[in-house]
Design a binder for these strands. Structure first.
Lengths: 200, 200
DNA sequence: TTTGAGAAAATGAACGTTCATTCAGTGATA
DNA sequence: TATCACTGAATGAACGTTCATTTTCTCAAA
C-alpha cells in the first residue's frame, strides 16, 4: 500500500539519523537503506525538506499524545505533574532515534519559524499544569521561563546522558532520583499541615 | 602578523555561525566576510574541520578560564557554587556567538570522539566543587549525573531561552531567580543552627 | 482461465548546483 | 632577482532533484 511505503521511508530516516547523524543524511542513503530507489522517495514527498518536516511533526505528535494520555483530572496537581514527567521520560527512553532526531532537527537548516517556536513548547501540557499549580501555591514563585528551563533542561540533559551511557535511567533508583529532583526543584516543600492524612 | 589573520578568520567564523548557522557556513563566505580569499584560509588551517575544531577548543578554553577565575578558596562551598554559576552565565550572556557555536558544534559532523566526551564536562570545575559539597552534606544526595543534569540542563536551556527572547537574563530579578532555583534544586535547605551568625 | 492493454509505481542515470580544496599566477618587498 | 603572502579560477566530489524508461499491477474481454 502507498502509506506503507511512506512509513517505511519515515522510519528509515529515523534509523539513519540515529546511526549516522543529520549531517550525513542523504536521499541516496535513505533509498538504499529502505531498499527502494532515490526517485521513489519523490513520489511520496515533495522534497527532502518536506520529508524531514513531516517526520518532525509525526514524532512531536506521538510524544504529545503520550504525555497527554497520562493526564488524569482526578489526581490533582502533584499526581499529574509526576505522571507527565514520567510519561515524557518513558516515551523517549525506548526511542533513542526519536530523541536523536528531535535534538538534531533543531539546528537543521529546514526549520520553519513556527517549528523553531515549537521547540520550547515541547512540554506544553506540563507547562499548562505548572501555571495551575502556581496559582494554588504548590509551585515555587519563579518566573515561568525559569521553571520551564529547569524541567525542560534537566529532562533533556538527563536523556542525553542516558543515551551517552553516563547513567542508566532504567535503574529505578536513578529514575526516582530524577523525578524527586525535578519535583523538589519546582514545587514548594509540602506543608505537613496540608498533607492529606490517610486515617484522620 | 600571522596570528592576526588567524584570529580574524576565527572570529569571522563565530560571526557567521551566529548569523547564518552552522549548516550554511562555507569557506567562501568566511573568506568574503573576512575580506580575504578562500585560498588564504588554507595557509592558516589545514582544513575546514581543523578550523572548526580549533575554534571549539578556543571557546572552551576561554570559558573554563572565566569560570575557574571566579573560584576563591576562602568563601567556602556555597559562595563558590554561586560564583561559578554566575561566571558561567556572565560568560555567555554577552557572547551569543560563542553559545550558538558550542551548541551547534555538538551535532556537527566534525566532532571527534574526545570532543564528544568533553561536552558534558563543560562545567567541570563546578562538578568538582559539587563532589566536595556532597561530602560536606550541603548537596542533595542524588546521583552525580542527576545533579549535573540539573545544572547543565537548566543553564543551557535558560541561555537558549534568553537568546530566543523568551526571557531577559539581564534583569536582576530573573537572573536572581535562576540562581536561587538552581541552588535550591541542588543543595539541601540551609539548617538555621549551622548558619554563620553575623554578630554572635 | 488466459490475454493484453492501459494505469500506476518504481527505477536509476543524468543534470545542475554547491562546496571544500588545490595550485598556477600576481605583485609587493627586500 | 628571490621571497613571500596572497589570490581566485579550476577541480572534482557530493548532493538534491528530475524524468525518460521499465516493471508491476489491474481488470475487462475473450
Amino acid at each position: 500500500m502507498a502509506s506503507d511505503k511512506k512509513q517505511l521511508i519515515l522510519s528509515t530516516v529515523l534509523d539513519l539519523v540515529k546511526q549516522t547523524g543529520f549531517y550525513h543524511l542523504n536521499m541516496k542513503a535513505i533509498a538504499e537503506r529502505a531498499g527502494i530507489s532515490a526517485g521513489t522517495i519523490y513520489l511520496y514527498f515533495k522534497s527532502k525538506e518536506e520529508l524531514i518536516n513531516e517526520l518532525y511533526q509525526t514524532v512531536l505528535g506521538e510524544f504529545n499524545q503520550a504525555v497527554l494520555h497520562s493526564y488524569a483530572p482526578e489526581v490533582g496537581f502533584s499526581g499529574n505533574f509526576e505522571a507527565m514527567l514520567r510519561a515524557a521520560v518513558d516515551f523517549y527512553l525506548p526511542r533513542k532515534d526519536y530523541f536523536s532526531f528531535i535534538e538534531q532537527y533543531t539546528y537543521a537548516p529546514f526549520l520553519f519559524k513556527e517549528s523553531q517556536e515549537e521547540n520550547f513548547s515541547l512540554l506544553l501540557p506540563i507547562f499548562k499544569l505548572l501555571r495551575q499549580g502556581k496559582k494554588e501555591g504548590l509551585v515555587k514563585a519563579f518566573p515561568e521561563p525559569v521553571l520551564i528551563s529547569i524541567i525542560h533542561g534537566t529532562l533533556n540533559t538527563i536523556l542525553k546522558m542516558h543515551f551517552a551511557h553516563k547513567l542508566d535511567l532504567r535503574k529505578k533508583s536513578v529514575y526516582q532520583s530524577f523525578c524527586t529532583a525535578v519535583r523538589e526543584a519546582v514545587t514548594n516543600p509540602a506543608n505537613k499541615d496540608s498533607l492529606p492524612t490517610p486515617h484522620p
